[in-house]
Amino acid sequence: MRREGSAFQGVGAVFVKELSDNISSVRMLMLELLIVVTAMAALYEAIAALRQNTAEDPFLLLRLFTVSQAPLPSFVAILGFLIPLMAIGLGFDLINSEHNRCTLSRILAQPIYRDALLLGKYLAGLATIAISLTALWLLVIGLGLIFLGVPPGGEEISRSLAFLVIAIFYAGVWLSLAMLLSIVFRSPATAALVALGIWLFLTVLWPMLAPAIAQAIVPPDPRFAVLGLDTPGTAIWTQLLQRFSPNDLFGEAMLAVLSPTTRTLGPVFLDQIRGAVMGAPLPFGQSVMIAWPQTVGLIACTIVLFVAGYVLFQRQEVRA
């Protein structure tokens, strides 16, 4: 059965209203404050460390994103941790709040499809995060210029832009998850708790569990252990399992894009590096190729979660 009219009718109105709500909300202000303060602290430490070797590094701007100085992790690592928090904070009550406010049936009685409401809300959430990350990105570049005094090259800008795009895709995964949970659970508190639980599991517990599971699947070979090396089978399984976490995919993609010398994201065998000039940077396109599977993985994960939420929402009874 073909529906009449466009599924996108009303998306613009929903998008503008939700974006306005997001940007002016106290919740968003607090999340932005948390991210900016933490990221700036990491950036300050990175700038202090980089001032020591300004002349030696051709990719100084990129180092701002990746250099860490104890006790703070790098700027990218902090974002990898905080972007999910921001996305969950925006998405955990996207749909259930409409139920609880009793606005859903009134809104869906207007000449729009449910698709428009869902898509408009999702895009508004993603746009909010994108605006925040872009502001943060500009702030990093601006501070880098001021404190390091070295103008960034074209490739540095390209790579940092690739970082921005991948970070938005990464946020998309968590926003999709939060939206899915806001459809499944009528209580925003339950949705938020479940989302935070999944985030903590994938970010903190899974990196510890994945090697243990990999060792159970492929027990380590003592001969490799004697040489101080990982057993290849175990290492491959560990990496495979860890890639179930969006956090790991984001970390790997960032490594490829922001560290031009990165040639592979998996275990390296001797025959693979034969003839390679160690420490030589790869062209931007090659780095993107390395990060591509991880980026596609993030996009695929977003689509799967969004579609799951879409199907559930379409089938949901709207009474409130």
């Binding site: 059965m1 529906r3 009449e4 606005t103 049936s105 207007q110 000449p111 729009i112």
Partner: peptide, 21 residues
Amino acid sequence: RQPLQVKRRVGYLPDAVGFYD
């Protein structure tokens, strides 16, 4: 089959009407 046509012409006031406070 034609929900938009119907919703363009029909106004609905639900039991518990909600607005954005």
